[in-house]
Design a binder for these strands. Structure first.
Length: 280
DNA sequence: CGGATTTGACCGCG
DNA sequence: CGCGGTCAAATCCG
């Protein structure tokens, strides 16, 4: 099952490369488009290699593929690995989650890279596409950067006093990649869009009053938190509000997928790569 | 007409 | 003093 999921992830990445190549072939007359497509194709092939290597290194057993949408928290300690047990469709499987623990001082600030899905999306980049609504309040030329940095704050700052902010900076070397730096979490009532939440009737329940998500474990234990903005199909950020509390689990898509943590809680945001369970 | 964006001015920090 | 972040008036847009 896991090897199937991993193979599916690899196939998906290869299909994407194929599609991009097709797009390139159709647009050979347009230099700008070619320039934009080439690094995306290279990146897709690179990812495929990483997935294949990771797959092989684990003898066909599951391990989360590394991703082009790598989360890059500001401050990292040595990455740790932990095991979780997931029970799905009656069978219990074991899968590895690669965790990175961020020290507490960066609790309200983190960075990720976002790759835009289409070059046609233009210069505004991933601005509004993370499940929250943002209001742009500034733009600044940054010394040594090709592209200006855009400043956004949550639309609900005035109405709810929501402190969430983000900065979006287009990458110098790959125009299809945006560096997004988030500052503070949302305290407004707005929820990530429906498709970005955990599955219906699944492991996640949202508490609208608190803008929170509850992760219910098989044993009845419940962790309360809030889903951080979605960074892509394969990553989600879990930020414990206190030890032993984790942010809601993303990715149970259309199935009930109880998650059981094997180990103690950690203080600080925890990034989890475990996309193989819900990747197409 | 109201909300969002643009953009030059302003401010604080190193 | 320079740079990055924010403010706010002007402008845009649905």
């Amino acid at each position: 099952m896991e090897s199937n999921a991993c193979a599916a992830a690899l196939l998906a990445e290869l299909s994407q490369a194929k599609e991009l190549l097709k797009e390139l072939e159709l647009n050979l007359h347009c230099l700008d488009l070619c320039k934009a497509l080439t690094p995306r194709i290279a990146s897709s092939i690179h990812n495929s290699f990483l997935m294949a290597e990771s797959f092989e290194a684990n003898n066909g057993h599951d391990r989360p593929p590394s991703s082009s949408l790598a989360l890059r928290p500001r401050t990292l300690s040595t990455p740790k690995r932990r095991y979780v047990r997931t029970s799905h469709a009656g069978s219990t499987v074991r899968m590895v989650m690669k965790l990175r623990i961020i020290c507490r001082k960066s609790l309200y600030s983190w960075r990720c890279q976002v790759r835009v899905s289409s070059v046609a999306r233009g210069v505004e980049g991933p601005g509004e596409d993370d499940g929250f609504t943002w209001r742009k309040y500034g733009q600044k030329e940054i010394l040594g950067a090709k592209y200006p940095r855009a400043y956004f704050r949550c639309t609900h700052r005035t109405s709810h006093g929501c402190p969430a902010k983000k900065q979006v900076q287009r990458s110098d070397d790959d125009p299809s990649v945006y560096d997004v730096t988030y500052h503070a979490n949302h305290t407004c009532l707005e929820q990530p869009r429906e498709e970005e939440k955990g599955g219906a009737g699944g492991a996640i329940q949202h508490d609208l009053g608190q803008s929170a998500a509850a992760l219910k474990l098989e044993g009845g234990e419940e962790f309360v938190g809030q889903i951080a903005p979605s960074f892509g199909p394969m990553e989600e950020q879990f930020v414990p509000v206190s030890p032993y509390q984790f942010w809601g689990f993303h990715g149970a898509e259309n199935s009930s997928l109880p998650i059981e943590f094997d180990g103690d809680g950690e203080v600080g945001p925890v990034n989890i790569w475990a996309g193989v369970e819900w990747m197409q």
